[in-house]
Design a binder for these strands. Structure first.
Lengths: 164, 164
DNA sequence: AACGATTTAGTCGTGTGCGATTTAATATCC
DNA sequence: GGATATTAAATCGCACACGACTAAATCGTT
């Protein structure tokens, strides 16, 4: 007999609680530069590629505009970036780093090493784990889109060119 | 050469976004029984062992009383459980399922199988993944706890170049 | 050119999550 | 036995996160 499913069996709970555990490790590091974790993610995206649209940031982070708009406004209020409506298409809002926004990239540079150390694991193991989790997320996104009882297949409107 | 850390490299982001992806798969299933995911977790804990204290639930879920108290009050308002102050120690609040709270356990019984199907992976692989994630969480909790008195503090940006 | 459909952000309401603080009850120390 | 410390929940303020909806701009078809 399989037995009643308890918390112990839930992979989702493992992800949920480990995500929170990560946040607790990040917090003191991010407090030092005045960012929350989601704000840090947005800044990381912009450090990689500046001048993205709100929607593009949302696509990268899998977050809705209803989440991002207030968050980005807070970053603007903190003087780290600027929001400007695109002159070509005024529906779109382009997000650009300020000098100060670029400057704190250096302050944040030490964070990944701190996090790596906190995991106490080898980078190879962590990357392997990340690969497995990414694969799982892709599966779940498929399922969430395709939704109902299995048989109906939804054609994705856009091909997802995804990394590992 | 390691290069600048981008979003692609972040295990934490993989966890963060996959946790949200799980939530999106759960949502339609939980909507049917009127629960949110954290509420479902609390109910799962109580289905396993009824009559726990708020603090004991918090320990199992790694959540603070400031999160749990309002959540549990909502479950009480929904008629799924009852909060009673312990007569021996009136600081403590014991949480007990109502008949209705026990009843929806049957309705929720089909959820794990739905989730398993949504992952599209073999249970053995998922359990292996869960094991790795649990180990990671334990490490992170160690780091978050021992962070103050431990050996590692925030590394200055200068010495970051060594770490990849 | 006209007008309905689509797209992009933004707003609003609800429900987490947590740190800091508070309140009340119990434990401990002298 | 009474002052003090500790503990368990609760409260408060802030920041996500999302669904439902809105507003405005653009697109598409005729």
């Amino acid at each position: 007999m399989p037995g009643a499913p308890t918390l112990e069996h839930f992979l989702c709970f493992a992800l949920y609680s480990t995500s929170h555990a990560f946040n607790r490790v990040y917090k003191p590091l991010l407090d030092a530069i005045g960012l929350t974790y989601p704000q840090y993610l947005v800044m990381t995206v912009l450090w990689e590629q500046d001048g993205l649209l709100v929607g593009q940031i949302g696509e990268k982070l899998a977050l809705e505009s209803s989440t991002l708009t207030p968050l980005i406004k807070r970053l603007e209020a903190a003087g780290l970036l600027q929001r400007t409506r695109d002159t070509k298409d005024e529906r779109q809002v382009r997000v650009t780093l300020t000098p100060r926004g670029r400057a704190i990239k250096a302050q944040a540079a030490s964070i990944p090493a701190c996090i790596l150390e906190a995991t106490g694991q080898a980078p190879e193991q962590l990357m392997r784990l990340k690969g497995d989790i990414d694969a799982l997320r892709n599966q779940l996104e498929q399922a969430a889109q395709g939704g109902r009882s299995g048989s109906s297949r939804v054609i994705t409107p856009r091909e997802e060119t995804e990394h590992g």
